[in-house]
Amino acid sequence: MWAPLAESSPLIGLAYNRGAESLIKRNPASADYLEVPFELLRHDASIIDLKQYKPFILHCASMSIAGSARPPLTTIQQIFEWIDRTETPWLGEHLSFITAEKPGASSHRDEYAPGEPYNIGYTVSPPMNEETITMVVESVDACQHHFAIPLLLENPPLYFLPPGTTMSQADFIRSICGQTSANLLLDLTHLYITSRNFDFDPRRELLKYPLEQVVEVHVSGVDCQADIHWDNHASPVPDPILQMLPLVLERGKVRAVTLEYNWPSAMVESVLVDEVDRVRRVVQRGMPG
């Protein structure tokens, strides 16, 4: 499925939810692939049956690649198994941490998981500095040791600047990509959210990322609450975000553009179809229509 299309224009896919499943079953031509979280497959293995309709890309949020608390070996083994079963061409993972160590001297008595690392259950950006780069490089090397497919790192949105940060996200990612074999899963919505929260021009900043290493792009909606911009996987991608996509396409080797409309309150099927067409037009013509 993937190899013959390596030279053609990027494929357009949907992040998995029930709506995407229904659409793929009833209208298989609407999207080219499904992106499915490892965590969901681990919870409900029957979702693999959808592979008869569309190829899968495997996405992951469990490796805490920018943290020092390593995932259990069983998790790595399960990811390995799902890489095999999904036949995913690469593994996307957040350039974030989801677990963090509890300092030995901490007075915090954790009733939730005593003796275990903090588990946020959601990916969060680490401080962006040389020490974190070293940590991430080691994590990526360890992952590549386990997995025979490419690893893509996804830029997280920034809602606050983690203390200890000494560089921009673009420089942070460029350095990591330069020191590892990892490529980039560029979430344009995350970049846009960060630009709004820190008041910079996203198009100018975008060009500082290693766009030549972008293999996959994510887009989704944006929400503004309490004067902060937030990720929103239940609303259409705003035009200013889609307008950045051609800049990436003309500089990178993008093979897939995923619409992340996977929250339960996401759009009705007709809107989902329109959204796929809208993104496809941008990919084919280079500008939002």
């Binding site: 920018a66 943290g67 020092s68 941490f97 677990t99 963090a100 160590e101 509890k102 300092p103 901490s106 915090h108 954790d110 939730y112 903090y118 588990n119 946020i120 959601y122 969060v124 680490p126 401080p127 500095n129 040389e130 020490e131 974190t132 940590m135 983690p162 203390p163 200890g164």
Partner: peptide, 16 residues
Amino acid sequence: MSTTTVNSIIARCILD
């Protein structure tokens, strides 16, 4: 610098 410590404090802020 201690990324481990900063991550730990942020995680605790979110969880506690």
